[in-house]
Design a protein around this nucleic acid. Structure first.
Lengths: 242, 242
DNA sequence: CGTAGGTTTGACTGATCTCAAGTTTGGTGG
DNA sequence: CCACCAAACTTGAGATCAGTCAAACCTACG
């Protein structure tokens, strides 16, 4: 059960190395973390709202989203996670969760005891800083989403979401021109504050404008510059090197 | 110039004490921070987008907002700050700013060298944790705003903004029933993703519904329960004790 | 094959925006 | 203390983007 393959942490280490200069001891400390790996199907609630977490979830494969549910049942997605992302770093410092994390696709997740991670952050300050930096970058992404949902029209919002997804895919070594979206049009609607009907029409429009080509959930960005312009997409808020 | 009145930090200390158990040494270390106090008028850009900060701004009096500007010039406010709040903690860990901070009212600000704050966070881990916690809570507020702007109608959004403002006012010792808004209706529009015209109409509607009474920017919440219901306001996301 | 989840389409509705013109208010200088 | 001005607030009418509802169409998968 307590799997400790060296390489379950490889994606996470790659991510952290973008955030800080890790030395050998740092790497060893990460690889020594206890972890329990589990596979979960799509649309599984991994982390509940208003719960005390004892474990921290590390996404090994697949995609998840961070979401909150309004009183009338409406769902708002505020970010997507990709392999190598820690899903509830907040739990290191805040006892109770204030939102949900759900799988978008089938996924593999490593569960790490919070206490072990907290110790790691304290004893290896470089890692602690990297983790803090990671939460700050996600904060920056939230700010961009507030702007996206609050001040851009439907077409721009969707284009922006595509740009961010493609750009972040490059950070884990994928090509941005050809992306396979893990999420349904309904998920896109919940991420952009629209309805799935309207998302569908806008995707068709982007297709008609020759900036993307679609084959089900495979998106080919045929005119990256135009898509960025439509999206009003600037990469600064992602705080990524490349 | 380098003012070091013991009590310029009192509001900030009160805030940090809500986030961690500070001991005498912690307090002394905070009070020993170098700081330069400046007064600025309303609508002054304190922190620019995409700039390297060398100083951290601590709000002593007045109100500020965190905002991003869209490509078409549209402004989106993503949070308000009150006395005792640090305005750019991100700068401790991220070299470049990704948004702006502007005064909403006239304000007094203490400027603290980033390096001093970074040292403080490292040498006094309790304070470091409190600061991290503070940035995480603001992240939670951003998430709530994404939900607010993305999934609630105009009336609820405005009601929610009022609830949050009133609730946070209580955390610095004010009464929630009678609030004096520092922001114009145009600011409220930029915070809720609406136009000032529509904000005006919705405020009138809340007035007509007998949940608030208005005398210019003085708001009296006459039916707190109803306002919370309209706003779909749950306090959990603020992670406040009370 | 049959089915469920996802996607697409059409017709109609409505919340919010736009534009443009008043009105009120608070501050400032004479 | 009053007159004036700019900024903020208010009002109305018409336009529009996105939502709603309901049905049909795919397509992956058991």
């Amino acid at each position: 059960m307590a799997t400790n393959d060296d390489d379950i942490f490889s994606a996470a280490i790659a991510r952290l190395e973008q955030l800080a200069q890790l030395d050998e001891q740092d790497l060893a400390a990460i690889r020594a973390l206890p972890a329990e790996v589990r596979s979960v199907p799509a649309n599984t609630l991994l982390l509940r709202d208003n719960e005390e977490a004892t474990q921290c979830a590390l996404l090994l494969s697949g995609y998840t989203c961070r979401q909150r549910i309004a009183g009338d049942g409406g769902r708002q997605i505020m970010s997507f996670q990709q392999p190598g992302d820690l899903l509830n770093l907040q739990a290191l410092m805040l006892p109770r969760s204030d939102h949900e994390v759900q799988t978008i696709s089938s996924a593999k997740v490593a569960w790490i005891p919070i206490a072990a991670l907290r110790t790691l952050a304290r004893e290896r300050p470089t890692i602690g800083d990297a983790l803090w930096r990671d939460t700050l970058i996600e904060g920056s992404i939230f700010r961009e989403w507030v702007l996206n949902v609050g001040r851009r029209d439907a077409r721009s919002r969707i284009a922006h979401m595509l740009c961010e997804f493609a750009k972040r895919a490059t950070l884990i070594g994928e090509v941005p021109e050809r992306i396979r979206l893990p999420m349904t049009q309904n998920d896109i609607a919940d991420a952009t504050g629209l309805t799935s009907v309207h998302v569908n029409r806008m995707l068709q429009e982007l297709d008609r404008m020759d900036v993307i080509e679609r084959d089900r959930r495979d998106i080919r960005i045929t005119d990256w510059a135009a898509l960025q312009r439509i999206a009003d997409f600037q990469t600064g808020y992602l705080h990524a090197a490349a």
